[in-house]
Structures are given as C-alpha cells and as structure tokens.
C-alpha cells in the first residue's frame, strides 16, 4: 500500500503507469463519446419546443459539467502538492489548467451557438454564462501565473494557493452572479428529486457526461506525461526513451 505512494514520487514509474492507463482509458472513452454523441444527435426525439437545436446539449452540458469539476481537480491537486509536497500532484495541477480552460471555452462557444436560435442572440449577460466566463478567467489566471514565474517550483506553489483561493470564491461568485440576473434555465438533472428531462434524452446525456470525464482524464494523463518528460529532459531514462544513447 505505502509503496504505491512512494512510487508516485518516481517520474519514470509515473510516466509508464500513466501510459498503461491511457492505453485502456482512451479507447473506452472515445467509444463512449462516439456512442453518446451518435445516440444523442441522431436517435433521440426532437424537443417539442426547441426542435433539433437542443441536441447541442450533448456537447454543451458535459463540457460545462467537466469544466467545473476540473477546477476542483486542479485545486485538490494544488492542495495535495502544498501539504504533502508530492511531485505528482504538482504535475497534475499544472496539467489540468489548459484542459479545463479548453472545456470551459467549448461550453461557452456551444452555449453561444445554442443561444442564437433559442434566445435570438449570441451572447447575453446572464448569470450562468457570466460565471462560466469568470471560470475561464480563473483558469487563464492560473496558466498566466505559472508562466510568469521563472522558478517552476515556486510557480507550482503560487498556482496552488491561487486555485485554493478560487475554490473558496467560486461558490460566492456563482451565487452572486445568480442573484444578479438569470435567463439560463435551471439545472434539469437532479440527484435528489425528479429530473425535468425525459429519460430517452437523459441516458445519452449521462453517457456523454461520463465520456467527457473519460476524455478529460485522458487529456490530463497525456499532459502529465508530456510535463514529466519536459521536467526530466536531462535524465538518462528520458534520453534512452528518445532513442539516443547516454
């Protein structure tokens, strides 16, 4: 049990195990993504009010859900790296930020495309849209802060502090914007109580959400592998890996 934690500190082992995980997870997630999207986009009934335009939900909602969860993954990794000084957590935190930013961006763009036929406008300063935009800024802030430091160990810790401050603030930002102005529909899927979405639409959506989590994890692992290689460029095992003799 403990040897597992010790091994986490070893970059070559981490690199290899992330590769093994990727080899299994990537095909499974892509298959789930393909199934979820094809099922949702082609084989569900059109919405009685929004017609076919609602089908973008199968991309929009999963991207938004995983983008929000991604921030907490980043902050949690940051907390672990601050408290226990684990290298793997630091690498994970750094690797999450661009993936989360990309997902937030996808959620904003698909939301905008969905808004045009539904609300008749590309952009409204509505509560949820605004808080997703703020989330994008938070991700970009973490990336920018990391890049600004020359000392990468300090950069990791600074970003960890920033993302932890963000976790405290996200609920406040979210609620404040919510009270400020809302046009966006309330959440349709609830863990407690009746969901307001038809089961035939719900199942492909849930599958898409799970698939997005899978793809997110794959992107995270890939990023972590790249980061490990970048940090260990000068070591023997990376040179052997690159084919060059030491």
């Amino acid at each position: 049990m403990w040897s597992f934690f010790h091994k986490l500190g070893s970059p070559p082992w981490l690199y290899r195990i992330a590769g093994v995980l990727l080899r299994w997870l990537l095909p499974v997630s892509l298959l789930a993504l393909g199934t979820g999207l094809i099922w949702g986009l082609l084989f569900t009934a059109p919405d009685f009010r929004q017609g076919n335009s609602y089908r973008i939900i199968y991309i929009h909602v999963p991207a938004a859900v995983v983008a929000l969860a991604g921030y907490y993954v980043m902050a949690l990794a940051g907390a672990v790296s601050l408290i226990w000084k684990m290298k793997v957590a630091d690498i994970a935190m750094k690797a999450t930020a661009p993936v989360g930013a990309a997902l937030t961006f996808i959620a904003l763009v698909t939301g905008s495309i969905w808004g045009k036929p539904t609300w008749g406008t590309w952009w409204v300063w509505d509560a949820r849209i605004t808080s997703m935009l703020i989330l994008l800024f938070l991700y970009l802030g973490v990336i920018a802060l990391y890049e600004a430091y020359d000392n990468k160990a300090a950069a990791g810790r600074a970003c960890a502090v920033l993302s932890l401050v963000g976790t405290v603030n996200i609920p406040i930002i979210y609620k404040s914007v919510d009270w400020w102005y809302s046009l966006h529909q309330p959440a349709s899927i609830k863990f407690t109580g009746e969901s307001t979405i038809d089961p035939t639409m719900l199942y492909p959506l849930l599958l898409s959400i799970i698939a997005f989590y899978g793809v997110f994890t794959c992107a995270l692992l890939g990023n972590m592998r790249a980061e490990i290689l970048a940090r260990e460029t000068r070591t023997g095992w990376v040179r052997r890996l690159a084919g060059g003799e030491v």
Binding site: I134, F137, G141, A144, A148, V165, N169, V177, W179
Partner: peptide, 30 residues
C-alpha cells in the same frame, strides 16, 4: 492576495489584474 503572489515578478502589473479581477466581481455586484 494577488500582490503577494506577484510581488517577486518583474511584470506583475497586468498579471495581478487577471488574477484578482474575477474575485472582485461579487463585491462589484453587491
């Protein structure tokens, strides 16, 4: 908080705005 994280950086000016302004928003709203 933003100032403490950027005080050691040479070009902290624009960066602190990016870091801090999202957290200013609730205060602005209320």
């Amino acid at each position: 908080i933003g100032a403490s994280l950027t005080v050691g950086l040479r070009r902290g000016g624009m960066l602190i705005a990016l870091l801090v302004l999202p957290f200013y928003m609730p205060v602005l709203i209320f």
